[in-house]
């Protein structure tokens, strides 16, 4: 389904299995994402969507199989090094730095030198500061830049975190339910933002909200019981009785 399958994939998840105390959250799953792709992952609860993202960013290690990113095996690297390779994830619950103001949240996200000793230099590169301003505009938070992140409204926190994960210009963005708790209008704006981001970044989105998925107008991968169940456009998947069945738990005949 990816728009262009020429060249090497950016993300290559190869036959991974993840098990928690014997329970296989992901079984022999393979998935490729090409540079600039926008891809949506859906699936019922427990399908392994979040576990897949956890595995890509190194929070969970696969029992077998491997994850390649830009041709390099990353599934053995510590998490912070995976992040530095250019994978950024937005978590389901807003993960902003509550006691810092909006601007400092973005500054820390933008910084290119992430070592302890480098952080002791108070200088900020002008291009990094310009990037912060750009992100404030992108997320509509320019007026709120001096507000402590903990004081933001829920939707604003979600946007700030999107700004933070976009900040270092990662090659791959993982967005875990980015519109959770947002109003219909905010959801539409977020869909627009994500569509604008695709192309510059490859984007992998998890969401439950079918209206939002429709707005993204991107290829959809359905996960079920830790495996890829179907791939296709939302329109074709909607009419697929098997997809209806795993979502609604009805027998095939009844779904028809």
């Amino acid at each position: 389904m990816p728009s262009e399958q020429t060249g090497a994939p950016l993300l290559d998840v190869r036959d991974i299995t993840v098990s928690f105390d014997g329970f296989k959250a992901i079984q022999n799953l393979s998935l490729q994402v090409w540079p600039g792709d926008l891809r949506v992952l859906i699936g019922p609860n427990g399908a392994g969507k979040s576990t897949l993202l956890d595995t890509i960013i190194g929070k969970v290690r696969p029992a077998s199989g491997e994850v390649q990113f830009g041709g390099e095996i990353i599934s053995r690297l510590p998490e912070y090094l995976i992040a530095r390779r250019g994978i950024c994830r937005k978590f389901q619950a807003p993960g902003v730095l509550e006691s810092l103001n909006v601007r400092d949240n973005l500054r820390l996200a933008v910084r290119s030198d992430k070592d302890v000793f480098a952080s002791l230099s108070p200088k900020i590169r002008p291009q990094e500061e310009a990037r912060v301003n750009e992100l404030l505009t992108l997320t509509g938070l320019t007026e709120r830049q001096d507000v402590q992140a903990g004081q933001l409204a829920h939707g604003e926190k979600q946007w700030l975190e999107i700004g933070m994960v976009v900040a270092p210009r990662p090659r791959l963005l993982l967005l875990d339910e980015p519109t959770a708790g947002m109003t219909a209008q905010e959801t539409a704006q977020t869909a627009e933002l994500i569509r604008a981001l695709a192309g510059q970044h490859a984007v992998l989105v998890i969401d439950h909200d079918m209206h939002f998925v429709e707005l993204l107008a991107a290829p959809v991968t359905v996960l079920h019981q830790g495996q890829v169940f179907r791939e296709g456009s939302l329109a074709t998947l909607r009419d697929d009785p098997d997809v209806m069945e795993i979502y609604l738990g009805r027998p095939k005949e009844a779904a028809d």
Partner: peptide
Amino acid sequence: TPFGSLLTAIRDNENRSRFLGY
């Protein structure tokens, strides 16, 4: 310095800091 902000960041949300590459 940014070091001080990062200590706050890590105290507030260790995971977020880690997945920003720190």
